[in-house]
Nucleic acid binder design. Structure first.
Length: 380
DNA sequence: AGAAATGATTGAAA
DNA sequence: TTTCAATCATTTCT
């Protein structure tokens, strides 16, 4: 007994397994009359065909005779006799005819469903585990980041919101120059966003095209070989996995681009801007008029921030820097101190109309702590 | 181009 | 938490 015959025996022995698909065996038997012989016939035909190489078969492809005699006929005698097939000495069978006959055979659907089931079982046992598709944490991370950066997600809103938040974080003044940076950043982000979306679209289109192609191919083939819908599904899943891995690369490189953009545009240190003259004046005025205790309260900071159009923390930074730098080199700041002292005095004079004070070079600190007397150690 | 000025950051201290 | 002190990175001045 050769391998094929053994396999054949195995197949026919699987009747029980396929009952669900084939239907009630009794009714089939009634319809066919000779079920055993039918199955034997069809399997022998398959064997005969698969015995030949495609080349052989095609080489022997004879001009078509009417296939009707095969299609409808339930006389399998010829096929059976052709078991030895090609070299059998009788009339050489037309390959096309045999194929056609097989396709039209009434047992074909049943046989295919059995074969599908067997295939399903073996395929599942081979890679049943890796079929589950847990959401990749890596891709989720990338998705979240792109969403947070306003690259993916809702259209314009996300992008500008992120840019605005970033600008705020950078502490950029909302003045004219701040606006330029802001729009520049936004433009670059929009560019990245556009590239990302067009690439994504391309990938998705390619993916769906390819998927469709494969599905059509498999559906086409399912007429001539047993392919279950489940198998097609699995193939689609495989394709999608492949494409999503490509997508991940895209997401990764987009993330990188955004990070670079961020660091270039939004790192406050890199994008430091000097405060405008007026703001510096306001801050200096406060500093020198409170030289004895140059520590503005929270409220005062807020007020100064508002006046200078900067943030409270920028005010804090400024005072921190100013105190330490003043202390380090009081001499250097003496001129500045006098200047602001005069300034505030003049202002006070113009307000209170007490011109007599305007000539005093001392600080207007009524507390009596002239500028050079400020020492951080002896705060008061 | 190099120096000085300046706003921001960081880590320690109070 | 706030401030100090040192330092960084950039801008502005010479």
């Amino acid at each position: 007994m050769d391998d094929q015959t053994r396999m054949l025996a195995g197949l026919t022995g699987l009747g029980g397994l396929s009952q669900g698909d084939v239907g009630d065996p009794d009714s089939v038997r009634k319809q066919l009359g000779q079920p055993q012989q039918d199955i034997g016939d069809i399997l022998q035909q398959i064997m005969a065909i698969t015995d030949e190489s495609l080349d052989e078969a095609q080489a022997r492809c004879w001009p078509e005779e009417s296939p009707a005699h095969w299609g409808g006929s339930d006389d399998p005698a010829e096929g059976g006799g052709a078991g030895g097939g090609t070299a059998g000495g009788g009339l050489p069978l037309n390959f096309q005819h045999r194929k056609h006959a097989l396709n039209c055979h009434r047992m074909k659907p049943a046989l295919f469903s059995v074969l599908c089931e067997i295939k399903e079982k073996t395929v599942l046992s081979i890679r049943g585990i890796q079929d589950e598709d847990p959401p990749d944490p890596q891709i989720m991370r990338l998705d979240n980041m792109l969403l947070a950066e306003g690259v993916s997600g809702p259209e314009k809103g996300g992008g500008s919101a992120a840019a605005a938040a970033a600008a705020a974080a950078a502490g950029g003044s909302p003045g004219a120059d701040g606006g330029i940076e802001h729009s520049d950043y936004r433009a670059k982000l929009a560019q990245i966003r556009q590239i990302y979306h067009s690439e994504l679209e391309k990938y998705e289109q390619a993916c769906s095209e390819f998927t469709n192609h494969v599905m059509n191919l498999l559906r086409e083939q399912s007429r001539t070989r047993p392919i279950s819908p489940k198998e097609i599904e699995r193939m689609v899943a495989i394709i999608h996995r492949k494409f999503s891995s490509i997508q991940m690369q895209l997401k990764q490189s987009t993330c990188e681009a955004v990070m670079i953009l961020r660091s270039r545009f939004l790192d406050a240190r890199r994008k430091r801007r000097n405060f405008n003259k007026q703001a510096t004046e306001v801050l200096n005025e406060y500093f020198y008029s409170h030289l004895s205790n140059p520590y503005p309260s929270e409220e005062a900071k807020e007020e100064l921030a508002k006046k200078c159009a900067i943030t409270v923390s920028q005010v804090s930074n400024w005072f921190g820097n100013k105190r330490i730098r003043y202390k380090k080199n009081i001499g250097k700041f003496q001129e500045e101190a006098n200047l602001y002292a005069v300034k505030t005095a003049v202002d006070a004079a113009s307000v209170s109309a007490q011109a007599s004070q305007a000539n005093s070079p001392a600080t207007p600190n009524s507390g009596g702590y002239p500028a050079p007397c400020y020492t951080p150690d002896g705060r008061l």
